[in-house]
Simulated scan of single mutants.
Amino acid sequence: MKNKLIVTLTTVRGSRQYSLGQVARYLVIFFIALSAVSFFISNWLLVKTSDDLADLVEDHEQLNDQYEMMLGTQNLYKNELDQLSVSLSRVASQRDKLKAENIRMGDELYEGNNRIGELSATLGTSLNGLETLLNVEPTGDLSTERLESLTMMANQRLFMLNSIPNGVPIQAIRISDSFGMRMHPTKHKRILHSGIDYKADVGTPVYSTADGVVESAGNQHDGYGKQVVILHDFGFKTTYSHLNDIDVNSGEFIHKGQKIGESGNTGRTTGPHLHYEVRHLYSAINPAPFVAWNIANFDSIFTKVKSVKWASLKNLYPLNQIAQP
């Protein structure tokens, strides 16, 4: 019995014994050990996958926030600012009119002063909200001139945000590759990755990040597959590559947030994604500061992107109405 392994199986019909040789015994021990190792590896992979999934969910939520900023916020800001401008002008006009009137009767004078106080409070709250939206230092100034100045500043910022690329072009799963030097996945050599790669399922809508005109729309022969190139104001250009479908034509005028196609896997890729680039005078720029740019952090772009000569913008109309960076 030295080299034998006795296995006893018990059923409702009784017990039965089986004798296995030494080789079979080693196989059984190996199988048990392998099962134990597989159990621990599976649990480790499960924990790691859960952590990776949590990171992906966080990335997706951040991209959704940026996506909402790009698609909806600018229009929302514009509508709110238009309504606010009308409302503030009306309140300021009523207040100034009441101040100008010569109310001499006691009760009427008391009521008129109360009404002036109410209108001033409303105007102050609204102006403070506008200052907060624009992220400018509150002054406490409730004059019509301050209202006009803030309204002009808001409109100028919206003009810039519609003219220069900002926000994300797609509601993606995550960013799979950023701007910078990298080992190319198909060319197998270290070269500049001149944009941001957004991992997305085939057929995910792609949107223009600023107003402009389509320079080209079609299949490229340099590995980018189906691609749309849009020219914007002030020398900027954006490209959208590896598309599955294109919805615009060359020469067509495009507005910010307009759908221009759908993401895909065309050209030289290792998986479905959108390759997005921002260029200025043919030079590739890191899109990240433009993706994060919005009306509240408006001044950030002028310090983060140093390759553009922003200072000369202040000489352009209508930007020269209020000094720009």
Rank of each mutant, 00 (worst) to 15 (best):
N3W: 12
K4I: 14
R16D: 11
Y18P: 09
G21K: 09
Y26G: 13
A33H: 02
L34W: 11
A36E: 08
V37S: 05
W44G: 05
S50T: 04
S50K: 09
L53K: 11
A54K: 13
L56D: 14
Q62Y: 03
L63R: 03
M70Y: 02
T73F: 06
N75H: 09
K78Q: 14
L81I: 15
Q83G: 07
L84M: 10
S87G: 04
S87A: 05
R90I: 04
S93N: 12
D96S: 12
K97N: 13
N102D: 15
M105L: 05
M105I: 04
Y110G: 01
Y110M: 13
G112R: 05
N114W: 06
I116F: 13
G117H: 10
E118A: 11
N128I: 05
L130R: 04
E131V: 03
E137I: 08
E137D: 10
E137F: 09
D141W: 06
L147S: 06
L150H: 09
Q156T: 03
R157N: 06
G167P: 11
V168H: 00
V168E: 02
P169H: 06
S176E: 09
T186S: 04
H188M: 03
K189D: 14
D197K: 03
Y198K: 04
K199R: 13
V202I: 15
Y207T: 03
S216K: 10
S216G: 05
Q220G: 11
G223Y: 00
F234P: 14
T239F: 03
L243D: 07
I246E: 13
D247H: 12
F253H: 10
Q258G: 07
Q258S: 05
Q258P: 11
N265I: 10
T270S: 01
T270I: 00
T270V: 00
T270Q: 00
G271H: 00
G271R: 02
H275Q: 09
H275E: 12
R279E: 08
L281N: 15
S283T: 06
S283H: 07
I285Y: 08
N286T: 05
A296I: 01
N297T: 07
F298W: 07
D299W: 07
T303F: 12
V305Y: 12
V305N: 12
K309I: 04
K309M: 01
S312R: 06
N315E: 15
Y317S: 15
P318D: 15
Q324V: 13
